[in-house]
Design a protein around this nucleic acid. Structure first.
Lengths: 128, 128
DNA sequence: CCTCTCATGAGAATGATTCTCATTCTGATC
DNA sequence: GATCAGAATGAGAATCATTCTCATGAGAGG
């Protein structure tokens, strides 16, 4: 957040602070409306985008095309996400980072970035 | 492709066979129309999806939300994509696969899948 | 309290993708 | 080669997340 502190931004922030999973914009908008602390959908989108730009939240694009957000720890990391309940674990992989950099360099690529997400079924959701 | 062989499917297949980069459905639809071998947009989408389901093409979801397809080699691999010209290099990383599996297992996750894409600027597009 | 802006939000607009369904075509059979 | 059932097609409507528009509202400093 770079600019004015408004009720709406505080509200969106609050929701993100309460949950530990990735949430979609519409979902957050619903939570706020049900809670009686309604915020316009456009504003939810704008706020989320601002938070993502400033690096305060991580973004994840699901297979269904919906973009989800989550307040994460600061450093660079990746996610292990449960496909059923959405439980999220942050993981680091320095070796993987190095591998990606070296592969990119070997092929003459510069300014590399990457996306790496692992999805599975967590122990709690696994039948057995 | 699992079912009947139609002109439309052959046409889409042909376009995919000609290019080496990831292409969007609309893009393929345009190419076909310009070429005079027009195919309905719905059909292009359907065909691409069928090809993706059968594993004949790889799918990549860009930051702009458009889904792109590419005929790739069979085995499991990842992509190094140029953000400017779209040039694509297939890469393998057995060590990375192992790392992801072990991390998932350590956290009690089953049936894991993953996405790993590296984007950068290729040598040809790099200014300097 | 004023004012200068940035922020908000209702609704329209966008853009990719999917759905509908009447029509056409493929592939198997005679 | 003629038939036929069911699969495939495609034009346009529908969907859905997201973005845009712009008139109105509200921080923050003076």
């Amino acid at each position: 957040m770079n600019q004015r502190a408004t009720r709406q931004r505080r509200a969106v922030d609050a929701v993100l602070a309460e949950v530990d999973d990735f949430r979609g914009a519409q979902e957050i908008h619903d939570v706020l409306r049900r809670r009686g602390d309604s915020v316009g959908l456009s504003t939810v989108y704008r706020t989320l985008q601002a938070l993502a730009d400033s690096g305060e939240v991580d973004v994840l694009r699901g297979a269904d095309g919906e973009t989800r957000y989550r307040r994460c720890s600061q450093g660079h990391h990746h996610h292990l996400v449960c496909r059923d309940c959405g439980r999220t674990v942050e993981v680091e992989g320095p070796a993987v980072e190095r591998w990606m950099d070296s592969v990119a360099a070997r092929h003459g690529f510069h300014d590399v970035a990457h996306t790496l997400e692992v999805i599975g079924t967590c122990a709690g959701c696994h039948p057995g």
